[in-house]
Design a protein around this nucleic acid. Sequence first.
DNA 1: TCCATATCCGACGAATTCACTCGGATATCA
DNA 2: TGATATCCGAGTGAATTCGTCGGATATGGA
Lengths: 181, 181
Amino acid sequence: MGITTLTTATLPQTPRPIYHGSGAVSFSTKGEYGVRLMVHLARHHGSGPASLAGIAAEEDLPRAYLEQLVVNLRESGLVVSTRGAHGGYELSRPPEAMTMGEVLRALEGPIAPMVCASDDPEHAITCDRSARCTVNVLWVRVRDAVTGALDSMTLADLVPPRAVTPDDVARDDHDGAMPPP
Amino acid sequence: MGITTLTTATLPQTPRPIYHGSGAVSFSTKGEYGVRLMVHLARHHGSGPASLAGIAAEEDLPRAYLEQLVVNLRESGLVVSTRGAHGGYELSRPPEAMTMGEVLRALEGPIAPMVCASDDPEHAITCDRSARCTVNVLWVRVRDAVTGALDSMTLADLVPPRAVTPDDVARDDHDGAMPPP
DNA sequence: TCCATATCCGACGAATTCACTCGGATATCA
DNA sequence: TGATATCCGAGTGAATTCGTCGGATATGGA
């Protein structure tokens, strides 16, 4: 056996619960991981680009999968990338100016509880029995509730307020300080 | 070829677009068909049980599939069934007293944009990194928006108000009478 | 000039769910 | 007794989800 050098250090990822969605209106891991990624970028906004490898390690997420998610974010203009060494991604705008609606629409597509009630008029399909379809108002009402909640929050609302001195970032391995369950 | 009598008349179902969900917070056909079924029952409430075959024909839905959906509705106590000839299903309560939240929870499970933000405390999973997880408030806010919209509507809000005489139901093939786009 | 570090890009694959269908057992009314 | 229903469990093909892998390209530093 030759000496197979570990070029990209594959850290032992914590085991994930295999499958994810159970219940209504559930977002996929694309949405979950993507939001986590964006919050990470928001937290370190202004300190240059952050690499996916670093984010994956810190946030404990599968790196190769993040690579896929971030394509949507880049194509929607929410993040900008710099290639090459010391490259990575950063927010294209300050966190206060980026709604969670934009983020989740980029990651998961238009908000549409039903095909006849899509956020994006491009994908909106008026159902063939729209004349007698009285159910439509239900889906529209749900859609508006979701978009209202999403568009009224920004990335800045999700970064933890850094209460103390700015150099407590250097060491943050304070474990065992959780309230009892 | 023997004379294969058509016992259950399989009417040619209108072709369905194969796949359904595209986008975020989308409900499955279980939710769609189930709500249609419940609205149908609400519309004919007080006139005895309605058979699935009749509903499937009138509403143009796959009958055998409805059979599956209705199990959840019955086990949740939203409909009651009577077996045998002239049997069928009817609402267990008047439409005004049945929220769409109850209906959709019965059909699709708890409202949970993310595992850490489930409607049902039974299925709620506090994520392992809840200490630093600041994203949770987002999912909770979305969940509350959805449940708020759903629980503030009843089945009665979805049955079309029968404005005119009750015998205009007999013929309703009024096509070509739509407002111009 | 290399080389390590990045993003980019496309294909591939297993697990799981979705959207049904089918066959039969049981109950009820005419 | 037979037609009409609900009940019940199993099964199935297609599609999606949740990733992985291999390589091409770009960039900064030794």
